[in-house]
């Protein structure tokens, strides 16, 4: 077995680093995880998990069309991501159908369109890597795009960090004191679309929503301070990515799935043992033994 060739813990960690594709995967996935983790604080507090799911699935036809036309895939994904949200808003306003139903039917429609397009266009599109991610096989042009988009999202979030927090917490107050709530709404949606675009390279379209909500949910269980929540969310996302990639390398597993599973385990750990909000409230347990 391959595993037997690694003799020490040290070589378990360092040997994968001798591979160029592994170094690239670890770096890029950490970057993507940090961006998605940062955003996930806002999404979980705003209650936009379903919206994140919708946007990330809806980018599918955009990615396919962009590939077919030789455009940057992020452009196509972005247009369809924002388009799906606009369509959801429009249908919700013009019909009596409830919002979660509208979200569900719009994103599945977009996703289905993407799958049909793939089967029709049959270019060099690798359906598997779109659906499940391919952090190990990321191309140089994708790397450039990912770095650019990641920094763009991080800078936007850093500038409007407090406004977005206020928007999530109390949009009515924001509006009352003259803060542009409309702008913030679309800023958050834009960041969501862009983060979904970079996230899908790591874990694929189907699982990218996990990158956008799980780290935030984990952090929410661990702190009562917003800034701490952001930091914990980013850290847990990065750690999950590193663990996921290493584990997938050691045991020859699907990488995207491994990353998300690592996030899920970290969430479960917080769910059970978080000092204040965990099932077993560690703080109280320790206090009892003193």
């Amino acid at each position: 077995m391959e595993l037997c060739s690694f003799l020490t813990l040290d070589s378990l960690i360092t040997d994968p680093l001798t591979h160029d594709f592994m170094r690239k995967a670890l770096l890029m996935s950490s970057l993507v995880a940090a961006v998605c983790g940062f955003l996930s604080s806002y999404l979980t507090l705003k209650g936009w998990a379903l919206m994140g799911d919708a946007v990330s699935h809806s980018v599918m036809p955009g990615v396919v069309v962009a590939y077919a036309l030789g455009l940057p895939f992020s452009l196509g994904a972005f247009i369809f991501g924002v388009g799906s949200v606009a369509l959801i808003g429009f249908i919700k306003q013009k019909s009596r159908v409830k919002e979660d139903t509208v979200i569900g039917l719009v994103f599945t429609g977009f996703f289905a369109l993407g799958i049909v397009l793939v089967s029709k266009i049959k270019s060099n599109i690798d359906l598997h890597s779109i659906l499940f991610g391919s952090p190990l096989g990321i191309s140089l042009s994708d790397v450039k795009q990912t770095i650019f988009i990641s920094f763009l999202v991080v800078i936007l979030l850093l500038i409007f960090r407090k406004d977005l927090m206020l928007y999530c917490f109390d949009p009515r107050h924001a509006k009352t004191v003259g803060i542009n709530v409309f702008f913030l709404h679309y800023l958050l949606l834009t960041c969501l679309s862009l983060a979904a675009v970079v996230g899908l390279q790591s874990v694929g379209i189907i699982l990218v929503v996990a990158m956008l909500i799980t780290p935030g949910a984990t952090a929410y269980l661990l702190t009562d301070k917003f800034d701490n929540m952001t930091v914990i969310s980013v850290l847990s996302a990065i750690i999950s990515s590193l663990i996921g990639i290493y584990v997938s390398f050691w045991f020859d597993l699907e990488t995207g799935g491994s990353i998300v599973l690592a996030q899920t385990f970290i969430f479960l750990f917080a769910f059970l043992f978080a000092p204040r909000y965990g099932i077993f409230k560690l703080k109280k347990l320790f206090a009892g033994y003193k």
């Binding site: 507090l45 927090m165 206020l166 999530c168 917490f169 003259g178």
Partner: peptide
């Protein structure tokens, strides 16, 4: 706002909420 109109589980302190009054 009404107490029911806000998310009381939002991770934010008294100081932070009152500071929001100065944001504008």
């Amino acid at each position: 706002p009404q107490n029911e109109g806000i998310d009381s589980q939002f991770p934010i302190s008294v100081w932070d909420v009152v500071m929001m009054g100065r944001y504008g």
